[in-house]
Design a protein around this nucleic acid. Structure first.
Length: 499
RNA sequence: GGUCCUGUGGCCGAGUGGCUAGGCAGAGGUCUGCAAAACCUUGUACGGCGGUUCGAAUCCGCCCGGGACCUCCA
């Protein structure tokens, strides 16, 4: 069960480390969730997919995982100035909505996308707005310990005084002197003793519409404190795994460490894991670059950069094709390749699921290919969750399965070996990688399916009468919506959304 | 400017001292009314220059290119 040797890359140590939970079989895992102020975009999908696979794999290994993924509904400052405005309240003002209406709208949208991507719900999904008290209590502890000060109703973390007792910048490899000299001149830094200090609590300006009472002012919590407060509450002051995007390394995660040490005197996290970023056609995705793709746009194909719609599973597969610490470039070609590759493996899964052993002989080569499959997949996962290798292992066995299917017999393999292989493939495909075969109908529209089927009846009549002109005409006409595939028994069809 | 990551064949993407990655695309073939799928065969590679080594895509140095972060961002 848990004797498996899982190695994960720990950003804090900058090397792969054997994963040993603090209190096996229990594992505590935290992922920085979304700020719910706009529709989820392509970049929002990578972290949840990466850590969903980790969550699934740890569970597969037999661990009892408590996976916490927060919802940030308090908003972060737009910038580090006193005039800084909460993202959510800014959006609320622009849309003339109550802030919590924005939060509700985009939380639902986020959940919807997560469901489509077959991402399991976390064990706990705490909201920052529901943990204001915990955040205030944590800030009080930090002040008590002398690592924070109150200035004009706001509270700032005192990096200089913290550095006397603990290192700052360990995770991100920053040196405070360098940071100092590189700090830009921003307005409204006057409240801070030092430009590196960061806000724990901000006093709300009169036009700021999201605020709560606190010992210091009517205001709102700083950018980083929610994750520290909520992870400590649900996972303890020290827990196993903390994940997030590489862009959060500094300052967000660095600040989390400082806050937790400042409040509790303990390193909060044993293994820090960071997924890499993605690019679109080789360029950073950014609103100003006009290449920002929302996930609902990807799924519908309605975006000027997209040649067609790509399904949630295509996206999931595409992401799993590279190891999480490498960047992924998105392009139409890449997505179309991923779509084909995904359909191939998905087809293998569907074949295998219905296949029963009926061999008569043993072929040593086939036997070996199938028997080594499980170990190879586990080795790949144990090597810092290398899903790319797991997928390549699946391709290696795919032709064996196709040959079984073509010949109608599972020839060359023992019953025991076949059963084990079948179970392993299905478990890795659906339970660990979280891939689901997609439905053959147009988004579950039964009538559409019936319509196609009745046209195919006409076509099959034509084929029987050798009227291939009519048969081909029907196929060509249908090709705008569905792709046909004739087999000796029947005609399979697949709905394909064309732009 | 600082910190860090990265450069593999037409494209994507593993590997990390000697041993086939894999996918997509391409070429040839089998099968099929045709198409598709499937199966068989098949080519091209490790940014540049030095160094270490019996041996380097893999280690070291320098150079060149790409990217991220340093400011909200997954």
């Amino acid at each position: 069960m848990t004797d498996s040797k899982l190695y994960i890359y720990n950003t804090l140590k900058r090397e792969r480390e054997l994963f040993v939970p603090q209190h096996a079989p229990f594992v505590g895992m935290y992922l920085c969730g979304p700020t719910v102020y706009s529709s989820p975009h392509l970049g929002n999908a990578r972290g949840p997919i990466t850590f969903d696979v980790l969550f699934r794999y740890l569970t597969f290994l037999g661990y009892k995982v408590r996976y916490v993924r927060n919802i940030t509904d308090v908003g972060h400052l737009e910038n580090d100035a006193d005039e800084g405005e909460d993202k959510i309240s800014k959006k609320a003002r622009l849309d003339k909505l109550e802030p919590m209406e924005i939060v509700q709208l985009y939380t639902v949208a986020y959940h919807d996308i997560m469901r489509q991507l077959n991402i399991l719900p976390p064990s706990i999904e705490p909201r920052a707005s529901g943990h204001i008290i915990e955040q205030i209590l944590m800030i009080e502890k930090i002040i008590e310990h002398g690592y924070a000060y109150v200035s004009e109703g706001s509270v700032y973390f005192d990096v200089k005084s913290f550095e006397k007792d603990y290192p700052y910048g360990e995770l991100s490899g920053r040196i405070t002197d360098d940071l100092q000299s590189n700090t830009r001149e921003l307005d409204g830094q006057s409240e801070k003793h030092n430009p590196l200090d960061f806000a724990l609590w901000k006093k709300a300006s009169p036009e700021h519409i999201m605020h709560w009472p606190s010992p210091w002012s009517e205001g709102f919590p700083g950018w980083h404190i929610e994750c520290s407060a909520m992870s400590a509450k649900y996972l303890g002051e020290t827990f196993d795994i903390h994940g997030g995007g590489m862009d959060l390394l500094f300052p967000h995660h660095e600040c989390e460490i400082a806050q937790s040490l400042g409040a509790n005197g303990k390193q909060p996290v044993r293994y820090w894991m960071h997924n890499n970023m993605l690019t679109i056609n080789g360029q950073k995705m950014g609103k100003s670059l006009n290449n920002f793709i929302m996930l609902h746009e990807l799924f519908s194909g309605k975006h000027h950069l997209l040649e067609k719609a790509y399904s949630p599973m295509t996206l999931r597969f595409c992401m799993l094709q590279s190891q999480y610490r490498n960047p992924i470039d998105f392009s139409n070609k890449g997505l179309q390749d991923a779509e084909k590759a995904y359909e191939k493996l998905s087809g293998i899964y569907l074949l295998l699921k219905e296949m029963n052993w009926d061999g008569t002989s043993i072929n040593p080569e086939t036997e070996k290919t199938l028997s080594s499959f499980e170990d190879e997949c586990i080795d790949a996962m144990n090597d810092d969750i290398n899903t790319a290798i797991v997928l390549s292992n699946m391709f290696k066995v795919s032709s064996v399965v196709n040959q079984f299917n073509t010949s109608g017999k599972t020839e060359g393999v023992s019953k025991e070996n076949f059963e084990k292989f079948k179970k392993t493939y299905c478990t890795f495909f659906t339970d660990i990688l979280g891939l689901l075969p997609e439905a053959n109908t147009a988004q579950g529209n039964e009538e559409f399916g019936k319509l196609v089927d009745s046209l195919l009846e006409v076509r099959n009549e034509a084929k029987k009468k050798k009227d291939f002109t009519l048969a081909d005409a029907i196929r060509n006409t249908l090709s705008k919506f569905v792709t046909l595939q004739d087999t000796p028994e029947k005609t399979n069809w697949k709905y394909e959304k064309k732009k």
